[in-house]
Design a protein around this nucleic acid. Structure first.
Length: 425
RNA sequence: GAGCCUGUAGCUCAACGGCAGAGCGCCACACUGUGGCUGUGGAUGUUGUGGGUUCGAAACCCAUCAGGCUCCCCA
């Protein structure tokens, strides 16, 4: 065997079975988005590096993007995220778009990271955003879209939860502790690490960052206070809206959710698998106020979230929530008895195809045993046999492959007979 | 960017310095006009790749590629 050139590191190959999972996720994403009236859109897959240099994290631009010089000498990059493209496209047509804009997208992204479970270098991501409205009720709608998605794939609130926090609430709490603006980013990182570090080490790290003992104690009080949301009008309204939207059981307030401090300005949220082995977020998002101004548009508030296909795909597989893969889209296999009946069999298939059924003809006249075995492995529901006996009588054998029963019928009755089998399956 | 672990038949794995094996899958036959179930028989390999140590390497050493776990990061 010759040496096979390997696939690029961190990419995935979608054999029909994997393609089935990818399409399953895509369909659920599309249905959840459309159920709330969102329009599908997309941006370019390659962009100039400058688009990301403005606002995205330094880590992303310098180390985790696929960047190269094109033949004209311009630095371009395979998109690592969608939000900057969204901001530019909205800003470019700000005067003519019909606000509020509700848009969703599901497309490929690239990040140069070290691949591990739940993380590849090439992945698909669902992005969904509402722009032009700034209210806790709008935030609740986006969270509800995410919750309905979880529900639609069979992840109950016992298995997956959306944790919510609010940046403004945390800011006022930090103000009350006299934590300076300069330390906010460090404190945010500190909070993110809390579940990953031993309590004593975490305390020491906090003091190292320059917090006083009383600030640390105050911070711990905040992070342990799961009723803190009652102090926030925004969160109070948010939870009231989530209740009438029917997704309250999916959402919990958690003061430990930070999601960086880069561009989120209000509500932030993150969904997690609560029972599985993966500790990665399923999706995450929040409200951002200044994104459009950063690319030269008029200030416009938005709220949205993103979900990669990798983590949710693993969770769905591990929880056995992916429907059974159907190898062949064919509903019927027309067997090919011998060379003399070759064209007759093709003609029979065309006839049934005209009736709206998916039909495959076995492409060579080999032993029927082999043809039936093939149909069985492909999980095709019905098989037809047109041999010399049948041809002489103007009839065809229709076999129900799941029951193992077969009948000989006239050509006019074939389609009805097949439909009967498909209904029973 | 750092540390640790793994790579053997199509798949899951065994052999741990001395003849490369098992289960599943695959193929054939029983059943020359019918799949699943059963039985009998059969084929399978540059042990990821390249080098080194050794009388002898799948095993030990080095490099490299790929995957996994953790840290970092998570826009």
């Amino acid at each position: 065997m010759k040496k096979i050139i390997q696939a690029v590191k961190g990419t995935r190959e979608f054999y029909p079975e994997q393609m089935f999972l990818r399409n399953f996720i895509f369909e659920k994403v599309r249905d959840a988005s459309r159920a709330f009236g969102y329009q599908e859109w997309d941006g370019p897959f390659i962009e100039t590096i400058d688009l990301y240099a403005a606002k995205s994290g330094e880590e992303l631009v310098k180390k985790q993007s696929f960047t190269f010089e094109d033949r004209g000498g311009e630095l371009v990059t395979l998109r690592p995220e969608l939000t900057p493209s969204l901001a530019r496209m909205i800003a470019a047509k700000q005067g003519e778009l019909n606000f509020p804009v509700r848009w969703w997208s599901f497309g490929p992204f690239w990040r140069y990271e070290s691949p591990q479970k739940g993380r590849t270098r090439e992945f698909f991501q669902w992005n969904i955003d509402m722009l032009g409205v700034n209210s806790p009720e709008a935030d609740a709608e986006l969270i509800a879209v995410g919750a309905e998605f979880l529900r639609s794939v069979g992840l109950s609130p016992e298995r997956a939860l959306i944790y919510v926090n609010n940046r403004r609430l945390m800011d006022s709490e930090f103000d009350a502790l006299d934590i300076s603006k300069e330390k906010r980013l460090d404190v945010s990182n500190l909070v993110d690490r809390r579940t990953k570090m031993e309590p004593a080490k975490w305390d020491a790290y906090a003091l190292e960052l320059g917090l006083t003992q009383s600030q640390l104690d105050g911070l711990k009080d905040i992070l342990g206070n799961f009723k803190l949301w009652k102090k926030s009008d925004e969160l109070t309204r948010l939870f009231a809206a989530l209740e009438v939207l029917g997704v309250k059981e999916y959402v919990k307030f958690d003061p430990n959710i930070m999601r960086g401090l880069l561009y989120y300005t209000g509500t932030v949220f993150e969904a997690f698998d609560t029972s599985g082995s993966l500790k990665r977020a399923i999706f995450g998002g929040g409200r951002y106020d200044s994104l459009l101004a950063d690319v030269g548009g008029q200030p416009l508030s938005g709220v949205g979230f993103a979900m990669g296909d990798v983590v949710i795909g693993i969770i769905l597989q591990e929880a056995s929530l992916v429907p059974e893969f159907e190898p062949s889209p064919a509903q019927v296999l027309v067997t090919l008895f011998d060379e003399k009946l070759w064209l007759e069999s093709y003609n029979l298939a065309a006839e049934i195809r005209n009736a709206g059924l998916n039909v495959m003809v076995f492409p060579e006249p080999v032993k029927l045993q082999k043809q039936f075995k093939f149909a069985d492995k492909m999980k095709i529901k019905a098989a037809l046999v047109l041999g010399p006996d049948e041809a002489g009588k103007g009839k065809v054998v229709v076999k129900d492959l799941s029951k193992g029963e077969q009948v000989q019928v006239t050509r006019e009755a074939i389609v009805d007979e097949i439909r009967k089998i498909l209904r029973a399956a």
